[in-house]
Every structure is written in C-alpha cells, then in structure tokens.
C-alpha cells in the first residue's frame, strides 16, 4: 500500500508545484514508484513544470468521472521510468471533481505506487480540501514571511480536521518545507527565522530550499531542478528533503549566502 502525501500551503505561489516535481523526482530516483497528481483543476501547471505538456491525453477529471482508464491517463516521465504524472483538467467547472471520484482514483493509485503525491491548488476551499482529503502525510510549503506562515497555520488546522485520517481520529503526519529562503536577507535580519517559523507552527522541519535561479531555469525547460541541475543548491536541498521523507535522519543545514563568481561580479549579475 502506497503512501499519499499532499503538498499544500494555503497561500499561492509559494512553491507547491515546484516542490511536488522535485520531491517526486528525487523519490523516484531512489527506485520508488511515484505518481504526481495535479489537483489544480482549471489551472494545471505541473505538466509544464515536468515537461509533459505535449503528451497530455486524459486527466484527473476524466478518470474520476470514469470517462477514461487510469492507465490511459498516466504519463510516464521520459527521464525516470518509475515516475508518472496524472494531469489536472483545464475545465472551468469547479465541481468537476467529487469526493467519491477522487477517492476511487487515489485508492487505485495506492495499489500501484509507493508514493502518491498530490499538488494542491492554493486557497483553503474545495479544491485544496479535496487534494488533502485522502492524505496520510502533508508537506506544508511555507515561505519565511508573515502571510505565508499565517496561511500555513490555517492549512494545518484543516489537515487536522477535514482529512479522512483526522476524522477517523488518527493523526496526519505533517512536515514544514521552507522554500524560497533568501540567505542574504536572512543575514540582514529581514526575514522570519526558521526557528520562528517552526515555533509558531509547532511542526517539524522537512527541509529548507534556498531561493535560486536554477529553479526558474529548470521550469523553463520543463524539468524538476533535481534532474536539470543536480549539483544546484536548491536541487540538493530537495534531494535531502526527499530522503527525510523516506525516514532518514539528516540534519538540516541553514543555507548560506552564495559567493558570486568572478565573471558574475564583473558583469553585475546575480549568482546563479
């Protein structure tokens, strides 16, 4: 039986889709069978970030409504053959997904995969609640700034109340993944510290992903950063976070300010 993990945040644009792609790819590279589900119905993007946008035939809504077979909707990654994607639909109908439909799809995926990773839409409404509904674990993506931390707190409340696990009186395993961490701003004391974030949310830390241009370059070419630039600091941080998800006890290092290269300095460019 596979594990279902929701990647969620409340606040938009904090890095859920980026994290779903990179954690998923990193888990799959350890040999696990992994499927990524895009729950952002109407605004799918995980296909683009994964570079599979030209290959979408069917989507989550088609499968949930039993208009297509699961096996026909899954897109196998061209780089890692144990990694699959179930894209979101582009329909504007907000009620296209029902709890029963999603439940059926997730139950079937649990049978076939070690990890089912659900990329939640932003917000705390129906879409976000459906994405978390059947989760065993949650990765709460948080940026070190006040509105993101506040939204994470609301999401934690929902995870503890509105998931099937919570309703059965079980606890859902939660992890904070701090993303877009800017070491330079942290050094100047302009950003909430990691300790502050963890203390406020009283939830354990899965990792700290630094703000890094490599993430953007990877999404430009349609690849998780862990595959596109494996030696990049953000990529390494994602690989370590994935290992912690697998249960390894790795210490979390605080990202440091990156030194700019000689050429970059002359040309006045940001460090890559």
């Amino acid at each position: 039986m596979g594990k279902v993990i929701v990647v969620t945040s409340g606040k938009g644009g904090v890095g859920k889709t980026t994290s779903t792609a990179s954690l998923g790819a990193a888990l799959a590279q350890t040999g696990k069978n992994v499927v990524l589900i895009d729950f952002d119905v109407g605004l799918r993007n995980l296909d683009l970030v994964m570079g599979a946008e030209r290959r979408v035939v069917f989507d989550l809504v088609n499968v949930a409504q039993e208009n297509a077979k699961l096996s026909q909707a899954l897109i196998r990654d061209k780089r890692i053959n144990s990694l699959f994607l179930l894209p979101a639909s582009q329909t504007r109908d907000k009620d296209a997904l029902t709890e029963e439909g999603v439940g059926r799809v997730i139950a079937a995926l649990r049978e076939k995969f070690d990890y089912v990773i659900c990329d939640s839409p932003a917000g705390i409404e129906r879409g976000a609640q459906l994405a978390m509904r059947f989760a065993d674990e949650a990765v709460i993506v948080t940026n070190p700034e006040v509105s993101s931390v506040r939204d994470s707190d609301r999401i934690i409340g929902l995870l503890d109340a509105k998931t099937v696990k919570a309703e059965k009186g079980e606890t859902i395993n939660k992890h904070i993944l701090v993303t877009r961490y800017d070491a330079a701003r942290a050094a100047r004391g302009e950003m909430l510290s990691i300790e502050d974030v963890l203390e406020i949310l009283s939830t354990p830390l899965l990792g700290i992903i630094p703000e890094n241009q490599g993430v953007l370059r990877a999404s430009n070419v349609g690849s998780p950063v862990t595959l596109h630039e494996p030696t990049n600091v953000a990529a390494k941080a994602y690989v370590e976070a994935a290992r912690r998800l697998l249960g390894e006890k790795l210490p979390v290092a605080l990202p440091t300010v990156e030194k700019k290269g000689f050429l970059d300095r002359i040309l006045g460019r940001k460090a890559a």
């Binding site: 683009l48 946008e53 030209r54 370059r217 990877a218 070419v221």
Partner: peptide, 14 residues
C-alpha cells in the same frame, strides 16, 4: 538567452 528561449517555444506550442 539560454533556457528562456526554450520556455518561449514550449509556451507558444502549448
């Protein structure tokens, strides 16, 4: 322009 070119092409197609 590096990866931005690839991004533009992918988007135009999609």
């Amino acid at each position: 322009r590096g990866s931005a070119d690839e991004a533009r092409e992918r988007l135009q197609l999609l």
